[in-house]
Design a protein around this nucleic acid. Structure first.
Length: 446
RNA sequence: CGGAGCGUAGCGCAGUCUGGUAGCGCACCUGCUUCGGGAGCAGGGGGUCGGAGGUUCGAAUCCUCUCGCUCCGACCA
């Protein structure tokens, strides 16, 4: 993409309403525009990151054997009357009437609807296990939306639902989700710690929240600092192997890590003092096992091998997709702007032409742009007629992790500059070597 | 929902107390000079001051009502 033809409305000054760094940078980098309290338009740059995050979530869900579908944002109230949640959910649920005066609602979550789909089509244990998920906009009419996309009223969420014949299978689905979530967050450059949590209005017995540590987090968290060292890395987990999956979960949940809701001071004090940490965290996901809560009330049953009809065992599992943008920025920025992890960056690399209109510089930039494209890497080429400082400032603000700087001075020696946004370190090399370097870096993130 | 505050040009703000016909910086447009970390000079365009009603010769400014947004708190992907 050529910047001169793109729509990237960056702001030089901080918008007054933005109090936290991710919100400020998302507005300044031209990623979002607020339309009402807690409701945002996603401008091109923000939309690209949102789609990247969505893509990673999809890939990891499919890898775990989960099946994507798409349910509507609007739901009939009757479905929620069946589970009893129409009255329980309260003011957070946006209730709407259509022209026939039928009661509708903008879905805050989809347990009822997915159960309705399941019961309509599945009757046998032979069709299980099954996990269905979608990535869809939700609406929760928060009393107090804040912090940009971190606590919006409208937000994009991945929500998945597992259906299993017995509790052991359902707990395996729970574990499978935990492992797939760990992989998902790691690919986004995040350290998200699973913490034992409280179940809230969804209801259930077992539940973990995934927290990204950040000073601006809304939850107070207590943990053994050793949990932050745990990495799933490149290990190849067989999602159908119950013991292997359970072993990973055990590894990641044995050390003490809890939110204030479930904090146990006695257990916490048993941790060696130097590893005892109290911090803030942003909740970026949550998994629940809730058994037959919905299948009982809504009549979702299967026939077992023995010929008896049993309600299916269920759980639900969510990832706050739009919130993740804020969380990633909170975890990865400096005083110049955002620093995107390679996994989620809107463009893999930026090309800065220091002297637009200079024949050699223009040709070198065009050559780099094409060579990168040939390797499947879409660069953001700043071909505006701007001064170097302005171009650098824009690149730093929007946070592309790598920058290739092209100017007449370097070209006289046959070199361009490759700069890491994270470290600020630059290295001179030939244009061809620069393309190879960038391609090599991204090979690990495909 | 309790408490606090703010709505004046795309963004950041002054002007409101003490009423007199709207201003600054950035951004935008034109020209010249500049050109490796948000350039300089000159010129230019853009606002029924959130909305409605009222007081007044006259309202961004005073009064009433209303809408919107932000922050702190209790609740939540």
């Amino acid at each position: 993409m050529r910047l001169s033809r793109y729509f990237l409305p960056v702001l030089k000054e901080n918008p007054a309403e933005a109090q936290i760094v991710s919100h400020r940078y998302m507005l300044r980098a031209g990623m979002i525009k607020q339309q009402a309290a807690g409701i945002y338009s996603w401008l091109p740059l923000g939309y690209r990151v949102l789609k990247r995050i969505e893509q990673i979530v999809h890939e990891e869900q499919v890898r775990a054997g989960h099946i994507p579908l798409l349910m509507p944002t609007l739901q009939p109230a009757d479905l929620w009357r069946e589970s009893g949640r129409y009255d329980d959910y309260g003011q957070e649920m946006l209730r709407i009437k259509d022209r026939q005066d039928r009661e509708m609602l903008y879905g805050p979550t989809n347990e009822e609807m997915i159960t309705d789909i399941f019961r309509a089509h599945v009757n046998s244990y032979k069709d299980l296990p099954m996990t269905l998920y979608h990535i869809q906009w939700k609406f929760r009419d928060e009393m107090r939306p804040r912090f940009g996309v971190m606590r919006g009223r409208e937000f994009l969420m991945k929500d998945g639902y597992n259906f299993d014949v017995d509790k052991a299978s359902a707990l395996h689905a729970y574990n499978r989700h935990m492992v797939s979530y760990l992989r998902t967050y790691e690919r986004m450059g995040l350290t998200a710690i699973p913490m034992r949590a409280d179940s809230g209005p969804i209801g259930g017995d077992d539940t973990h929240e995934f927290l990204v540590l950040a000073a601006t987090g809304e939850s107070e968290v207590f943990f053994d600092s050793a949990v932050t060292e745990l990495k799933l890395g490149q290990r190849d987990v067989d999602y159908d192997d119950r013991d292997a999956v359970a072993a990973v979960c055990k590894e990641f949940t044995t050390l003490y890590a809890r939110t204030d809701e479930t904090h146990d001071p006695a257990l916490f004090d048993a941790i060696p003092e130097e590893r005892r940490k109290v911090a803030r965290g942003i909740e970026v996901g949550q998994i629940f096992y809730f058994g037959t809560k919905y299948s009982d009330s809504m009549g979702a049953t299967v026939v077992t091998a023995e010929g008896t009809k049993v309600p299916v065992e269920m759980g639900s599992h969510g990832i706050g997709v739009s919130r993740l943008l804020g969380a990633i920025i909170e975890a990865s920025h400096d005083d110049k702007g955002i620093i995107w992890p390679e996994g989620v960056t809107p463009f893999p690399v930026g090309i800065v032409n220091l002297k637009q209109g200079d024949a050699a510089a223009d040709a070198a930039c065009n050559g780099l742009y094409k060579a990168l494209a040939a390797k499947g890497l879409e660069a953001l080429y700043d071909d505006r007629d701007e001064r170097a400082g302005a171009k650098f400032a824009t690149m730093d603000l929007i946070g592309l992790p790598w920058r290739i700087t092209v100017g007449p001075r370097g070209l006289a020696n046959g070199v361009v500059e490759v700069t890491s946004r994270r470290t600020g370190e630059s290295e001179e090399m030939s244009p061809a070597a620069a393309v190879d370097r960038i391609a090599q870096i991204y090979a690990a993130h495909r």
